[in-house]
Amino acid sequence: MAGVAAEYFLEAIVIKPIRLRGKIKNGIAEVKALLPHPMETGARVDSEGALVPAHYIEEVVCQRNGEMVLRAEWGASVSKDPYFSFKLHNSTVGDKITISWTDNLGDTATGDITLA
């Protein structure tokens, strides 16, 4: 495994929780999501000249009250700490919006918000 930065063998990467914001206007919910994640492409070279292994979110699933309303597949060219926003029709106050991601290493995270 020569050429791979030593620190990436340590379980040192702490991924912060998902942050969500949502608001409703005329039945349309606008959800803004910040998904902290390194989103390493696998092509970046660190300060010591070693290649940083690919580590990025592959799938994002959005559910409303437990039902899937949006699904996305991402590549490594989504920016670090991905921010994305989207809109949901037929939304009402009290709807629970859940976002979860799965990355290429099989890790996952989930966050939710109740629309107010």
């Binding site: 309303v69 949006l70 996305a72 590549g75 490594a76 060219s77 920016s79 994305f84 989207f86 809109k87």
Partner: peptide, 26 residues
């Protein structure tokens, strides 16, 4: 022009508006 041109695909349902914002690397 990216090494892997596909950044992402969003699969919609009847309740998701065909509109989103995202930040990408170029």
């Amino acid at each position: 022009e990216n090494p892997n041109p596909l950044s992402g695909t969003f699969y919609l349902t009847e309740d998701s508006a065909p509109e989103f914002s995202l930040r990408v690397k170029m």
